[in-house]
Nucleic acid binder design. Structure first.
Lengths: 196, 196
DNA sequence: TGTACATCAGTGAACGCGCGTTCACTGATGTAC
DNA sequence: TGTACATCAGTGAACGCGCGTTCACTGATGTAC
């Protein structure tokens, strides 16, 4: 890798590579997207990649950290700026947005979760971001019960995994809507067995 | 691929390949496990693979269908042989078993979900098995509410995804336990359930 | 201001390794007589 | 029962393609004077 100073143009290119890689990795998986495809999406040729990243693995690490830290920062801000109920709605609703899931701009946990569990690298940064997301969710729970935040996150992640897996668009949407209804009881008060 | 009759010995070998592939694919992902590794795990050399399967893709399809249909049949039987509450416990408890998750013998949805969404093939069979699993879960819900079954499945899948992603064993177990507590509100006893 | 030179981001051909796949062959099992 | 032959499951060397990686080169940008 060439080791040169940072430069406006260089930084912009690097950011474009990161953005496109983030989108493509979430859509087709780390192993399903080559360096070639990432660079092409960024409007470049594959050879230039190594002027920005030491290896594909380094790109994967960077993408994972960036996306998770961004998600954590977002949830953290929301959970501090709003009251419990509204904060939860502002976290859950966009998370379960069907368009976002389809476009590959959703949370990295459902789409890259299994990939990251395997390409295990920089797991420390991943763990820190995960802890932050849990802390933000806990702030949204009645009584700040962490256990309930863990379950909420599980439901969110599982719903997106299953929505992506479902061939039938109706079933796909049903998973997302069911999760939203269950996690935001204010919208639909039918949910009976919510443990206090 | 050689096209010969079925034979006891042939069938046993084929089954061994399927079993090992199922375990390895769930542990390390479809792209993380080569034909070589699968055959080695089955006590054979890689060359013989194509006497049993037309291609690696064919093996992936077969493994996915087999595992999902087995899970569906298991849930279906449980949901018909027990009352609602106990059936749910017999489904949820082994699903969230930490040892099973670690050993790669858990449900294929969390581990292969994203893989299958990408290697999209035989999605029809996958969809059918998924429908069956939802139907079985619905039978366990008060009022047989399908929406609640969808959420339950999301929570189960998400908890396993997150447990596998977590570096910290304590956090990993916390995801599984939180989901179990949330999905089995009344019952506390750890009923030893039958294997799939 | 224009010219000469240095530096830089990006190009694209080429390399090499891994992995899916093929195939000629082998040792074992089963069968006919 | 033993011998000869056919069939089979599995072996392991080899092939070829894809993809990560390297590198000599190019055109553009910036700087010195």
């Amino acid at each position: 890798m060439r080791t040169t100073e940072a430069t406006p143009r260089r930084d912009a290119t690097r950011q474009r590579i990161l953005d496109e890689a983030g989108r493509l990795f979430r859509q087709d998986g780390v192993d399903g997207v080559g360096v070639d495809a990432v660079m092409k999406a960024a409007g470049l040729t594959h050879g230039g990649f190594y002027a920005h990243f030491a290896s594909k693995q380094a790109l994967v690490d960077q993408v994972a950290c960036t996306l998770l830290q961004r998600a954590e920062a977002n949830w953290d801000a929301i959970s501090r700026q709003h009251d419990r109920t509204q904060a939860l709605a502002r976290i859950v609703t966009p998370y379960l947005d069907a368009d976002r899931v389809a476009a590959g701009t959703c949370c990295p946990l459902p789409t890259l979760g299994t990939d990251l569990a395997r390409h295990a690298s920089s797991r420390q940064a991943i763990g820190a971001a995960l802890d932050g997301m849990i802390a933000a969710l806990t702030r949204c729970m009645p009584g700040r019960r962490r256990q309930r935040a863990l379950t909420t996150l599980s439901t969110l992640v599982g719903a997106v995994v299953l929505a992506r897996l479902s061939d039938d668009p109706a079933l796909s949407k049903a998973f997302l809507d069911a999760a939203a209804d269950s996690l935001l009881p204010a919208v639909k008060p039918a949910s009976s067995a919510a443990p206090p």
